[in-house]
Computed example of a mutant assay.
Amino acid sequence: MVLKMARPWPHPVTGIYWFRMAVPAKLRKLVNKREEKCSLRTRDPDEARIRHALKTAEVPA
């Protein structure tokens, strides 16, 4: 089975890239969210990849 790597998601209207990561099912009641998301504040895909990697390192797995 092939798993997709997490990657920056471009907003369809603004083009600004976003960080999105699913919250594990066991933690959803604790956090009250299905996914964690925040703006990467860039339209540049290369810069978005860098910021996404940094944000991924911040979020505990």
Results as ranks from 00 to 15, higher is better:
Met1Asn: 15
Met1Leu: 14
Val2Trp: 06
Val2Met: 09
Val2Thr: 15
Leu3His: 15
Leu3Trp: 10
Leu3Gly: 13
Lys4Cys: 08
Lys4Ala: 12
Lys4Met: 14
Met5Phe: 06
Met5Asn: 15
Met5Cys: 10
Ala6Val: 14
Ala6Trp: 14
Ala6Cys: 15
Arg7Trp: 06
Pro8Ala: 08
Pro8His: 01
Trp9Lys: 09
Trp9Glu: 07
Trp9Asn: 08
Pro10Lys: 03
Pro10Met: 03
Pro10Arg: 05
His11Ser: 01
His11Ile: 05
His11Lys: 00
Pro12Gly: 08
Val13Asp: 07
Val13Arg: 14
Val13Thr: 14
Val13Ala: 10
Thr14Ala: 11
Thr14Ser: 09
Thr14Cys: 04
Thr14Tyr: 04
Gly15Leu: 01
Gly15Ser: 13
Gly15Thr: 02
Ile16Val: 06
Ile16Lys: 08
Tyr17Gln: 00
Tyr17Ser: 03
Trp18Gln: 08
Trp18Asp: 03
Trp18Glu: 05
Phe19Trp: 02
Phe19Lys: 07
Phe19Leu: 03
Arg20Ala: 07
Arg20Val: 04
Met21Gln: 14
Met21Ile: 13
Met21Ser: 12
Met21Val: 12
Met21Asp: 00
Met21Phe: 10
Ala22Ser: 12
Ala22Tyr: 15
Val23Asn: 01
Val23His: 00
Pro24Thr: 02
Pro24Tyr: 03
Pro24Ser: 00
Ala25Gln: 00
Ala25Val: 05
Ala25Ile: 12
Ala25Cys: 01
Lys26Trp: 11
Leu27Asp: 06
Arg28Pro: 05
Arg28Trp: 09
Arg28Met: 10
Lys29Asn: 13
Lys29His: 08
Leu30Ala: 05
Leu30Arg: 13
Val31Met: 03
Asn32Arg: 12
Asn32Glu: 04
Lys33Gly: 00
Lys33Asp: 06
Lys33Phe: 04
Arg34Phe: 03
Arg34Met: 00
Arg34Ala: 03
Arg34Tyr: 07
Glu35Ala: 06
Glu35Met: 12
Glu35Val: 10
Glu35Pro: 00
Glu36Gln: 09
Glu36Asn: 10
Lys37Asp: 07
Lys37Ser: 09
Lys37Ala: 04
Lys37Ile: 04
Cys38Val: 15
Cys38Thr: 12
Cys38Tyr: 11
Cys38Arg: 11
Ser39Pro: 03
Ser39Val: 07
Ser39His: 02
Leu40His: 06
Leu40Asn: 04
Leu40Ile: 14
Thr42Gly: 07
Thr42Asp: 10
Thr42Trp: 03
Arg43Ile: 09
Arg43Asp: 11
Arg43Glu: 11
Arg43Ala: 11
Arg43Phe: 09
Asp44Ile: 09
Asp44Asn: 14
Asp44Leu: 09
Pro45Trp: 07
Pro45Cys: 04
Pro45Met: 06
Pro45Phe: 02
Asp46Pro: 06
Asp46Leu: 06
Glu47His: 09
Glu47Ser: 08
Ala48Val: 00
Ala48Ile: 08
Ala48Asp: 02
Ala48Cys: 14
Arg49Lys: 04
Ile50Ala: 10
His52Val: 05
His52Ile: 07
His52Leu: 01
Ala53Gln: 10
Ala53Asn: 11
Ala53Pro: 11
Ala53Leu: 15
Leu54Gly: 11
Leu54Gln: 15
Leu54Trp: 05
Lys55Ile: 09
Lys55Asp: 12
Lys55Phe: 08
Lys55Cys: 14
Ala57Asp: 12
Glu58Gly: 01
Glu58Ser: 08
Val59Lys: 13
Pro60Lys: 04
Pro60Asp: 05
Ala61Gln: 14
Ala61Trp: 12
Ala61Arg: 09
